[in-house]
Design a protein around this nucleic acid. Structure first.
Length: 201
DNA sequence: TCATTAACACGGG
DNA sequence: CCCGTGTTAATGA
């Protein structure tokens, strides 16, 4: 992420730096979007919520990334389509949404940043759609575990079956059964509240 | 066939 | 005791 010096200065002068604790809801479904967040450190988990309040994990926003969905709707102040939760304690830079219009015209590097962000997210969303539409739950679960493991840079995930079920919008019974299958085939080891990912996964 | 829901037992903290 | 886990049985898509 390399911006013009002038743009860096503008970011500094407009941005409000926020420190959010792990697990806090940064943006919730239906909420008005007033700021454009850029993740400085830590990570946000983005998920979709259905009409019953059921959750579906979409993707992570890591350090030096921003939110493609905000780009697309911040100017007209549309309500948020997603929920963002701090996966770990994170630092954000919050920019007022009115800067968007101006910066897109003035700074080529900002335009590039916005386009790249949208491009990356769009492709990632397509992957997720493919999974939901074409893959079975066992394959989705494996992908989920891999992503989580890469995300947390840890082969030992601290998470309950219930939480996984929530994020994949399914029931715990199914997750427990599939995880047990994966353990039986030597791909993971299960503990209470923890899952060790083996290299065979 | 596979997911969901409800129900139950087991065990660790 | 509460929570996470493993399992089953009934029901549905």
């Amino acid at each position: 992420m390399h911006f013009e010096e002038k743009l860096e200065q503008e970011i500094e002068s407009h941005a409000q730096t926020l420190h959010v604790p792990q697990g806090s809801v940064v943006m919730d479904f239906g909420q008005k979007i007033t700021v454009l967040p850029i993740v400085v450190s830590g990570c946000l988990k983005i998920s979709r919520i259905d009409e019953n309040g059921k959750e579906l994990f979409l993707y992570y926003i890591n350090a030096n990334e921003s939110c493609a969905l905000t780009f697309s709707c911040c100017i007209k102040q549309y309500p948020s389509e997603i929920r963002a939760v701090a996966e770990e304690a994170s630092t954000l830079k919050a920019l007022p949404v009115f800067v968007m219009d101006d910066w897109l015209k003035k700074y080529p590097t900002w335009r590039t940043f916005v386009m790249d962000t949208i491009h990356i997210r769009f492709n990632e969303l397509l992957q997720t759609i493919d999974q939901v539409a074409f893959q079975k739950l066992d394959e989705r679960l494996i992908q989920y575990l891999r992503k989580k493991s890469i995300q947390q840079k840890n082969k030992l995930l601290t998470i309950s079956h219930e939480q996984i079920a929530t994020e994949l919008a399914t029931s715990r019974v199914v997750i427990s059964r599939l995880l047990k299958n994966l353990e039986d085939s030597g791909k993971i080891i299960l503990f209470r509240n923890q899952i060790r990912i083996l290299k065979e996964l």
